[in-house]
Write a protein that binds this DNA or RNA. Structure first.
Length: 501
DNA sequence: TCTGGGGTCCTGCGGCGC
DNA sequence: TCTGGCGCCGCAGGACCC
């Protein structure tokens, strides 16, 4: 550890003095050798004083002094070379301790899938997304990007920027299949691989790149074989940690290959605009700009209290990232969701209760299916509504028993709707189950309750909520609250904590 | 031009129990 | 019996990512 600290100190010193590391190393060794010799002479004089022979050195014959001097020079030279060997050893050690994290990003992935399906689209400006009046661009081809068409943009604006834009509605089954093929190929080659989304992943390649091939050549070969076997183009970034790898893959697109080690952050990372730094979004970037932080290099060097108070707890990790430090763990375990949700924007804002209710029932089925797919349960249901002013509100309700049943989810979401919706026009509605956990864990918890509660279903899952409401098997929360006496007569099941009075 | 849909993580606030 | 301080936890909202 001491050796590593010394090495890091030398590196920092060379960065600070803006001189070559070898020069600093040379100066340091001269300084150390000279210090050791001075200490040696001082120690010799002290010993001479202790043994009451202060003139012992002066009384020595000239030949003896020459021999001692020659011996001292010999020792100094040996010390110099030993230090040199030790430092190169430390260097190697630090190099070995540094990980090689790779980030692979599929370029304009959805657009590539569409082009592979229909070759006539090759070279044309295309955008994936809904063509409706409220559609937005999900992905655009590089030809469309030249017209200023980007993800997140409204389709109306995209069409106005690029008159020949070909709009394609998304085929998410196709994209999932292509993504599966691409990452399956990589998973066969690498053990430590973490899929971060449908079109990107991190791989720990620390022990994968052979010594007799450069990192660049190895990754270039990988990039070509990925294209050969999957017909998909990707950008690859290699760094000492996840942050550097991610920034490296973003550096050049399409088909980019960038390597960022801590040693070269000043040339590659620091000139990048702060708005392009991973973790700094469109809200924070302008605020940082006003404080004089225009590039990642500015953030790396700042100690401004204003920047600290703006970024709060994120300041330390953001500054560490800007200086080339960060998390280098790649977790290969499969995706384990913490929440599952579904939401839809209405074609037109609505105040129609039935329209909102039907949408909630539809979304609850989607959420239920996803929970079942991952074998998950949850006790927390959340309803999100967005009004015509684009203001979003969400409310939660906690159930006494965890569930993944679509009817119970719909029932809960409708109760929240009844309690909080003031009948203002709605733009969007969303249903989500939060803090989800494994079914096995859920059943262990349920065993704490009576067996009757576990085996007796509340209602038949195949029935629709509308029918249940009509038949009186299911009641709106509002009616339950008004009819408290009836509710008290039948206290067999109280699914909602939030409704207990 | 007028803003989708799926997530994660963090923060502030308020309720609650000790 | 009342009150303040403290920590915990649930909730709502915001920012960020793809």
């Amino acid at each position: 550890m001491l050796c590593i600290t010394l090495y890091e100190f030398l590196r920092a010193l060379s960065n600070l003095l803006k001189v070559n590391k070898s020069f600093v190393l040379f100066l340091s060794l001269i300084f150390i050798t000279k210090s050791l010799m001075t200490i040696g002479v001082t120690v010799a004089s002290k010993i001479a004083n202790i043994i009451n022979k202060p003139n012992v050195l002066a009384n020595l014959p000239t030949t003896t002094i020459k021999i001692i001097a020659a011996y001292a020079v010999k020792r100094a030279i040996i010390t110099f070379f030993i230090s040199l060997i030790m430092l190169s050893f430390v260097r190697e050690m630090v190099k070995k301790m540094t990980k090689k994290i790779v980030h692979i990003d599929l370029n304009a992935f959805f657009a590539q899938c569409e082009i592979n399906k229909d070759k006539s689209l090759l070279g044309k400006p295309i955008a994936i997304g809904s063509n409706g009046k409220r559609g937005v661009v999900s992905t655009s081809s590089y030809e469309a990007r030249r017209f200023g068409v980007y993800s997140g943009q409204s389709m109306a604006e995209a069409r106005s920027l690029c008159k020949n834009l070909i709009v394609i509605p998304g085929d998410y089954h196709l994209y999932s299949k292509e993504s599966y093929n691409f990452f399956s190929y990589l998973k066969k080659r690498y053990k430590l691989i973490e899929q971060a989304s449908i079109d990107e992943c991190y791989i720990d390649m620390t022990d994968c790149i052979p010594d007799d091939i450069t990192e660049r050549d190895y990754l270039l070969d990988l990039q070509l074989s990925l294209y050969k076997y999957t017909n998909l183009k990707c950008s690859i970034g290699l760094g000492d940690n996840r942050f550097l790898a991610k920034m490296a893959s973003d550096y050049q697109k399409p088909l980019g290959l960038t390597i960022i080690h801590r040693e070269n952050i000043e040339e590659i990372l620091w000139p990048i605009k702060i708005s392009n730094m991973f973790g700094i979004g469109k809200k924070t970037a302008p605020k940082l700009g006003k404080l004089g932080i225009k590039t990642i290099g500015d953030l790396a060097k700042t100690n401004s209290s204003e920047v600290k108070s703006l970024l709060e707890s994120y300041f330390d990790s953001a500054k560490a990232h800007a200086n080339g430090y960060g998390d280098d763990i790649v977790d290969p375990s499969p995706f384990d969701p913490k929440s599952v949700g579904a939401s839809r924007t209405f074609l037109d804002d609505t105040t129609d209760y039935d329209e909102v209710k039907n949408m909630i029932i539809y979304l609850s089925k989607e959420v239920s299916n996803e929970l079942k797919k991952y074998h998950k349960l949850s006790s927390t249901c959340s309803l999100t509504i967005r009004n015509q002013d684009f203001v979003t509100h969400s409310k939660q309700l906690t159930l006494t028993m965890p569930t993944n049943d679509n009817v119970v989810i719909a029932q809960t979401a409708l109760i929240i709707l009844d309690r909080f919706w003031k009948q203002e026009p709605l733009r969007l509605v969303g249903v989500a189950m939060l803090q989800v956990f494994d079914e096995k864990e859920g059943y262990r918890q349920m065993e704490l309750f009576s067996k009757e509660n576990i085996v007796k279903p509340l209602i038949d899952s195949n029935e629709t909520v509308e029918n249940l409401l009509l038949e009186g098997k299911l009641k709106k929360a509002s009616s339950v609250k008004k009819n408290k006496k009836n509710n008290d007569k039948n206290p067999s099941y109280k699914p909602f904590v939030g409704l207990e009075e």
